[in-house]
Design a protein around this nucleic acid. Structure first.
Lengths: 209, 209, 209, 209
DNA sequence: TATGAATGAGCATTCATTCAT
DNA sequence: GATGAATGAATGCTCATTCAT
């Protein structure tokens, strides 16, 4: 009762693994540069320097390549977020000192320096394609979890009760403002936006500011 | 002698105007339901009950149909925003009373009840297509302007100095949270999110609350 | 037993005649500029400043418009040829004096100053379309007739016996050399070509020169 | 990484080479029979017994197929001309003997027995399409070169000074008369035309005839 | 495993022509 | 006679995918 489906290679040999890596790299390049819809599987194969047949040996189709790229990308981003939010940044909170608000903004900006074009493309697909929508949602859940963890560690300094709702709102606000800067090009000086955002998050989260 | 360029119909006859309306309606239906890329010009014509030739008499192509739809949609939304932000909502501010934060959230939610699917699709294109990116940006600028106007009218009650930066941050935060509710389906109870958002905006904007 | 065919207007009213003239003029312009295949009936109507419906009231289709244009053009050219070949140019033949060879070349060049672009387009169609081939042939026959007449008038000075064959060869040679100058752009100085051509025709036709 | 540009197959496999040959053959057939404009890429594919996709794998488009056909055709014709003009035909010149005039006519006729229909179609395009115009011109230049070479080899017997101008006039005259015979169908007996043409060329070129 | 030629459904778009007003 | 919106068959071309080598 074996599946009729095309058999996708699970690379075991070194050569095969290299081919797979080349395809992934080409996919990142082209999806970032031209977008998903303008990137054809032939172009990917050519850009990767392999044959179209080989492409289909390694990935079911274009869509699945992007999903795999997304998976890898997301896990890298997730690790970066994990690292970032581990930082115990809240020694002396307040406008003058360090605070979560400012730190979140800083880390968000940093995260978007990593492949903003790919991020843009995946965000586009999250808005137009249910499967990518679902993937983005799962990714977001993991980020929210980390954010909740961060907030919990500073609970005593915070004024918010519903940490999960707060975490979500914070993540969304940061995400969108950073998009307006990194993806669409800040319409006013970046610093004014990031200061306002940092200020907003700080005031929202912190007791007696 | 006059120009030989392809001429798009500028409706003079009643029948022509009706056809144009049918195409616009069909475009809204299909772009909302299936997305831009899965909607073909043939499908639009069939859905509108007209011929493919007629479609091309009225619109240069699929893309220009969506642009026109967007224009119409945007101006409706803009009017709604204008009306909404005119409301002098700030009798007795504070967690218990009415306040801008809560009002902005409410109005944002209301706005997204109007054709959320189309809004989703256009947002997707704003992320993937430079022309739509530019259109969305212009639209956003007009919203920011209205928001700055609103803030200015309540300046004495507000703690923020940089009204434009504040306006932008507020608009982005509200937009994204509302998208997570109306477009992607709230992952937790809507009220928890909107309360947190309203609270955040309020704390950010208001003096010593 | 009237024909089912679309009834084409035979202009009686002044307005109608003007419309017809406008269409003919527009046809000449566009066929000359863009060629037959790139000229659409809509463009013709627009260029003429009339409606597409009116175009079809006056001409069966694009093809028949060109045929009519050709007819008018050909009769003008024919008149010009008639005038040209009437000239009794052979006072003192010889390389130094006037001679038929040189005159034919001169007149051929002059003829091709009249709408060379249209001539080019019609020649193209003569090569690719049987109906135009036939029309060109008829036109050619009339030119050959005139040429035979000219030769007959100078028979005593000529060495050729088969006047018709001579006429045809002369017409073809002149036509093609002039095309290479007027239509394709002379690859060497025009004078060298026309001198050679005139010389060739002269030597061919004249007795012991 | 290599270029992403659309790549036209450069045949490596035998099957590919066969397909290419089939397309070329089908192109010759259909362009000759129906002309360029009436031949669609679908018809070519069907006639060649291959898929439309395969057609586009091998040729950029219909136009480029004809260009390639022309290139092949032109080089064959050029070889034939080269062979023909090598003939040292001028033993005892004169109306009774062999002479260049008669030889040129003979060879021109022979050349046009090879695919006259294709020649007709390409001539049509030379009149209507700048790119084909340019191609025909280049081809003509090569023929003129060969003709100049021939004339040079018999210079002492010739009366003409400007060999290049003479060569061009000769080529044009022969070309057009032969077209009137082979392409349009001689309106009078072929022999009368060829005799007149041969006579004209002979009298033009030769000393004291 | 890798290759790349072959496939053909499907899409955007054009344009000659009709006909109701 | 004039108008121009409507029509839809037809065309050029793309691209995801298959499969024989």
């Amino acid at each position: 009762m074996s599946s009729d489906k095309r058999r996708i290679i699970v690379p075991k040999q070194k050569r095969s693994e290299e081919t797979r890596a080349k395809i992934l790299a080409a996919g990142v390049d082209l999806f970032s540069r031209d977008g998903f819809h303008s990137t054809t599987s032939k172009k990917i194969a050519r850009h990767a320097g392999i044959s179209i047949g080989s492409f289909y040996n390694h990935f079911e189709d274009k869509r699945n390549l992007l999903i795999e790229i997304h998976r890898i990308h997301a896990s890298k981003v997730h690790d970066m977020i994990g690292d970032a939010l581990k930082i115990e940044s809240l020694g002396s909170p307040g406008p003058g000192g360090s605070n979560i608000g400012r730190d979140i903004v800083e880390q968000s900006l940093k995260l978007h320096d990593f492949s903003p074009e790919l991020h843009r493309e995946i965000t586009a697909l999250a808005y137009s394609d249910p499967q990518f929508s679902e993937m983005s949602r799962r990714e977001e859940e993991r980020v929210v979890e980390l954010m909740v963890g961060l907030l919990e560690r500073h609970r005593d300094q915070l004024r918010v009760d519903d940490l999960e709702a707060a975490a979500r709102v914070v993540v969304h606000a940061a995400e969108e403002v950073v998009h307006s800067i990194k993806i669409f090009g800040a319409p006013i000086e970046e610093k004014r936006l990031t200061d306002a955002l940092g200020d907003m998050l700080f005031r929202f989260l912190y007791k007696d500011s």
